[in-house]
């Protein structure tokens, strides 16, 4: 059990340089000279050379990459912003919690809604509940979350004035943004849960249980659900990735000063170190969630537990 968890954690640590490599590699395609962008056209050649040297831009790609990984892993140093000349990690740590709260609460409510209605829909396949919820699911999966957010902002903040429209100071500020990501993503989870659950109810062991005369309720709760839960949890992890993307856009709708708006502003300002570091931090956060899901498996799935008991 602990052996399994340790193995997963080790794999996660090995993954970090890989994640950094991909983002680092993509950002390396940036054309043009950053010193020109940051210092302006009028800077002297000497100033530019100094800037490049300080930012370490005159070294080769492998050297820059290796020293970046070293600094991140051992010193938690993600570089300095081109614009403010301060360590980028300070601002990121300041903004990260807002994005994390939004993403996690969105994940919580959409799983709750998606899984429960998905199961209900599968159990009562072809009933009216099933028809309504599958249509609602495809509708909400097609709705742009930022548009849904704007619509709710218009109704609940501007028209009725019961919830704040922008900012992130109190829990009330999170109600609308959370709802804006919850609806589309619970729809996605509902569709997944329903199809996985339908697949499970058709397994032979469920038929056997029925033949034995086990009540429908016990079949669903004990046989079908427990087995469907594993693939459902796996797909939840992937959905969380797109939910995180949804949170980034939703932050813009409600002007939440989180990591999403931070990245977007940095892209506009061409502040590469901030983009690089924020992307890496969010990707690591996402991998941590996946790690937690994988390890929690070991507790749920007796097959994995058995494999590591010996």
């Amino acid at each position: 059990m602990i052996k399994y968890a340790l193995k997963r954690v080790l794999l996660f640590i090995l993954l970090i340089p890989g994640i950094i490599f991909i983002v680092f590699f993509i950002m390396d395609f940036t054309p043009g000279d950053p010193s020109r962008l940051i210092l302006g056209e009028r800077a002297t050649l000497e100033q530019r050379r100094l800037f490049r040297e300080n930012a370490g831009l005159d070294r080769s790609f492998p050297v820059r990459y290796a020293s970046y990984v070293y600094n991140v892993v051992f010193k938690l140093d993600f570089g300095t912003s081109y614009r403010t000349r301060t360590p980028v990690i300070d601002e990121i740590l300041d903004k990260l919690p807002k994005t994390v709260i939004l993403a996690l609460s969105g994940a919580f409510f959409s799983s709750l809604l998606g899984i429960s209605i998905g199961i209900l829909s599968a159990v009562k396949q072809y009933s009216r509940i099933d028809a309504v919820s599958t249509f609602a699911a495809i509708f909400f999966a097609s709705i742009p979350n930022f548009w849904l957010g704007m619509t709710m902002l218009l109704i609940f903040s501007l028209h009725f004035g019961i919830l704040p429209s922008t900012g992130a100071n109190t829990w009330k500020h999170y109600v609308l943004p959370t709802a804006a990501i919850t609806f589309p993503f619970s729809a996605e989870i509902l569709r997944l849960t329903r199809s996985l659950m339908l697949e499970t109810v058709r397994q032979d062991y469920v038929t056997t249980a029925r033949a034995k005369g086990v009540t429908e309720q016990i079949i669903i709760m004990k046989h079908a659900l427990r087995n469907a839960m594993l693939p459902i949890i796996t797909s939840l992890g992937m959905t969380f990735g797109s939910l995180l993307g949804g949170a980034i856009i939703t932050e813009t709708v409600f002007s939440i000063p989180g990591l999403g708006t931070h990245i977007i502003n940095a892209i506009r300002m061409k502040d590469t170190p901030i983009v690089l570091a924020s992307t890496i931090v969010l990707a690591i956060f996402f991998s941590l969630i996946m790690l937690a899901i994988d390890v929690s498996y070991a507790f749920i799935d007796p097959r994995i537990r058995a494999r590591y008991l010996k």
């Binding site: 993954l15 890989g18 994640i19 991909i22 983002v23 993509i26 950002m27 990735g241 797109s242 995180l244 993307g245 949804g246 980034i248 856009i249 990245i263 977007i264 892209i267 983009v275 690089l276 992307t279 969010l282 990707a283 996402f286 991998s287 996946m290």
Partner: peptide, 10 residues
């Protein structure tokens, strides 16, 4: 391991 949206942003 990198959510699609982040990859596209990069």
């Amino acid at each position: 391991c990198i959510p699609g949206m982040l990859l596209s942003l990069a």
